[in-house]
């Protein structure tokens, strides 16, 4: 048995690949739900209802999808250029804490039209900084950025924990470690009244299109894709590799940092160390499910958010641990990898 590369890939195959992968992941986690003695189809129905059954739940799902879209975009642009940014979680927290710090200290009295853009920018810059470190270590010392960006996730959460337990601690939070809040004027307006859905969703959606445009229609996009396809080839063709990768790292880290900023300005207004239920890590899955396509990221983020939001209600009703959502999302990453492989190769005897 051997694998042979398909010479022609029909469009239907490309579109079907992620759908089949998700179906396979759902079928496999169905086995786990069945093992728990719960009705599988009812469980999935309840997840769907829990995520979209009411106005409240639908807006909640979109709210949850917002940071996932941004961390997913962050992973997608980095992976395209083979910058293995696994540090989205840390960059998210850096973006969040920078936003809370600047928003509660420097810009506490500023009007919204001034503070919102500046705060989003400071979050993005903080995320960038955290990814530039591993990239620099890769270019300077040839250290694999996977491990360093992963390790920095732990450092970043500890830095946040230190700040919200020290200089940025909210004295009114009853001793609970929580950062001071940004001013109300700096909070992103709601997109839908009487819900948590905020303008961050629109920002993320627009950015998906912007990233798509940058990747497919600009010189930088071409260079970054070339750097990912073949670094040697890119250098040979005159692409300045280090500079291109640096810009990719700025874009990727910036998007992940922005996710943190948007979550602070859109939902909470302050930072705790449980602000992110793994948005950075889920972002990697989102990017892979999307086949690293920026517009696919939007759909993949919606799927992931649906699982997480829907599983909450389902798990209460059917007495199944809500971790089933994490399992399904992780499984869909693996099934997607396999599905993409078989979309590219056929089996020959």
């Amino acid at each position: 048995m051997r694998f042979e590369r398909r010479e022609h890939r029909p469009l239907a195959l490309i579109v079907l690949t992620p759908l089949l992968a998700v179906a396979a992941a759902l079928a496999l986690s169905g086995l786990l739900i069945a093992a728990a003695g719960a009705p599988v189809l009812e469980a999935y129905w309840r997840i769907l209802v829990g995520a979209f059954g009411s106005r409240l739940s639908a807006t909640e799902t979109l709210t949850r999808a917002t940071p996932l879209m941004l961390t997913g975009l962050a992973a997608a642009v980095a992976f395209r250029a083979r910058v293995w940014n696994i540090g989205g979680e840390g960059q998210f927290y850096f973006g969040a804490i920078a936003t809370a710090a600047v928003g509660s200290q420097l810009l506490a009295g500023a009007p919204g039209y001034l503070s919102i853009p500046l705060l989003l920018l400071s979050g993005a810059v903080a995320g960038m900084v955290l990814l530039i470190v591993p990239l620099w270590l890769r270019l300077r010392f040839s250290v694999d950025e996977v491990v360093t960006s992963l390790l920095l996730n732990f450092v970043a959460v500890l830095v946040v924990s230190m700040l919200i337990d020290g200089p940025l601690k909210d004295p009114l939070a009853f001793g609970w470690p929580q950062s001071q809040s940004v001013a109300d004027a700096a909070m992103l307006p709601k997109l839908v009244a009487r819900s948590r859905l905020h303008w961050g969703f629109a920002i993320a959606l627009v950015l998906a299109f912007v990233v798509h445009f940058v990747q497919s229609r600009t010189v930088f996009g071409l260079k970054s894709r070339a750097a990912g396809l073949s670094p040697e080839g890119a250098v040979f063709a005159g692409v300045p590799l280090a500079r291109t990768l640096f810009l990719v790292a700025c874009l990727s880290g910036g998007l992940a940092g922005l996710a943190g900023a948007v979550e602070v300005l859109g939902v909470k207004g302050y930072v705790t160390t449980d602000l992110s239920p793994g948005f950075g890590y889920s972002g990697i899955v989102v990017a892979m499910l999307a086949g690293l396509h920026p517009l696919g990221v939007v759909l993949a983020a919606l799927f992931t958010a649906t699982m997480f939001v829907g599983a909450d209600g389902m798990s209460r009703a059917l007495k199944i641990p809500s971790y089933i959502a994490d399992v399904t999302v992780a499984l869909s990453l693996i099934t997607m990898l396999v599905a993409v492989f078989f979309a590219q190769y056929r089996i020959r005897r």
């Binding site: 996977v146 994490d326 999302v329 992780a330 693996i334 990898l337």
Partner: peptide, 18 residues
């Protein structure tokens, strides 16, 4: 190997918690 390994990590840890 990078992405597969991360997939195994995410799957194994979430399955453990579940």
């Amino acid at each position: 190997q990078h992405v597969s390994g991360l997939g195994v990590t995410l799957f194994a840890s979430s399955l453990s918690y579940y």
